[in-house]
């Protein structure tokens, strides 16, 4: 089955990004496809390459990048929400791309199941 995910909260402040990641990993582990993860609202902060958590903490941004590299998950950051929060091409981590809200609607249309993670 093909999943689309929407993440509306930033990393560390709220559990949404962790829940979504664990969900995506479990879905892939079961042989499903995660076509796209769309980052909106403060969720765009999941994509900043400037993130440096303490060494004993999970690296939420790198975890997403690895998911994209290993499984071809399309990580899309909303351009408008990103600009509002200072997120541009220069500071997005590998595996993320910046695009429009149309990518969110398209994921809703093309996926078999669409799940929202937020506050």
């Amino acid at each position: 089955m093909n999943f689309g995910l929407l993440i509306n909260e930033g990393p560390y402040n709220h559990q949404a990004a962790d829940t979504a990641y664990q969900f995506a990993r479990a879905a892939l582990g079961k042989g499903h496809r995660v076509q796209r993860v769309f980052f909106y609202n403060d969720g765009v902060n999941n994509a900043t390459r400037l993130t440096e958590p303490p060494q004993d903490d999970r690296h939420i941004v790198n975890r997403w990048s690895k998911l994209a590299a290993d499984h071809g998950v399309d990580l899309v950051v909303c351009v408008a929400a990103g600009l509002r929060r200072g997120l541009v091409e220069d500071n997005v981590a590998p595996g993320f791309r910046i695009s429009g809200l149309g990518q969110l609607v398209e994921a809703g249309i093309e996926s078999d199941r669409f799940v929202v993670f937020g506050d």
């Binding site: 999943f3 969900f23 479990a26 582990g29 499903h32 199941r113 669409f114 929202v116 937020g118």
Partner: peptide, 17 residues
């Protein structure tokens, strides 16, 4: 567990958060 979460989403036509 998270696998069960995935199964639940797959079993239902839609989900609402």
């Amino acid at each position: 567990d998270f696998g069960g979460f995935v199964d639940l989403v797959a079993e239902h036509r839609t989900s609402q958060s």
